[in-house]
Amino acid sequence: MKMSNMRMRYGQTLLELGEEDPRIVVLEADLGKSTQTFGFKSRFPERYFEMGIAEADMTAFAAGLSLTGKVAFTNSFAVFALGRSYDPIRQDIAYPCLNVKIVGSSAGLSDYGDGSSHQSIDDLALARVLPNMTVLVPGDGEEAARMTRWAAKHDGPVYLRICRNDVPSVIPEDAGVLEPIVVREGSDAAVLSAGIMTARALQAAETLEKEGLQVRVIHVPCLKPLSDEAVRNAVAGVRAIVTAEEHSVIGGLSQAAAWALRGDGRPLEAVAVQDVFGQSAQNAEVLLEHYGLTAEAICRKIRFLL
């Protein structure tokens, strides 16, 4: 299977954007080697702001840069980019609706080794609750690149969630970044999946096909805005629905979908991190298995509902 890496493609796309658009500025909080903004630093040092380990200041500083017409990208691990910076994001970016892109790297459980302090299972909830915010969750490297480009052109706050590790490339390259994407057809059940869980949902659909079940897989690239109509259309005609995300079951895709489908009546289940913090593990797969974020977990939920 073809693999890709979101942070590599993000870093490369930032460089391309830097060439194309002199308004692009990049802010970093001493994690540029990891977030892959160092390429931009080498090429455009005058437009690169190393803010030190001061994420809150970085975020508000970016708001100030945007007020002079710059398109500012702030970078850190997701847990710090959003959590540590929540007040500046709320007060200085979302409320005045400024043109700042918050890029949360090593998101979800993807920083498997560093443990809970470095893992973000709450970033989507924090980003979604803010008016004016667009919340983008790529499923592979190319989608991360497309979303980076989209964010640079969009005039307004964006949260972009970036996985640390190599992931299967499963999202159609001609897909847009806002609307749910049917990546596999099926009429028995539907999986609404975000981020790296779409690849797992596709695996689950293949397994269940051998059992005679046709499972539709819908990748949800944009968690906000996400219209009720888009979700309802995406799951039209199936008998059961499962959501899948590498995030707490609170505040992310699971709740967004449940709300969109209120009153629908069809069985609905979630594959997500339960209301617990993460921990260290020897690799990402072990950690994802421990928290039940696997193709098999999706299969089990669908079998149970049907």
Binding site: R47, T59, A60, F61, G64
Partner: peptide, 14 residues
């Protein structure tokens, strides 16, 4: 104050 700093930096760039 942080916003003012970013604004000053942007004005310097320009």
């Amino acid at each position: 104050f942080s916003v003012a700093c970013g604004m000053a930096a942007g004005m310097k760039l320009d």
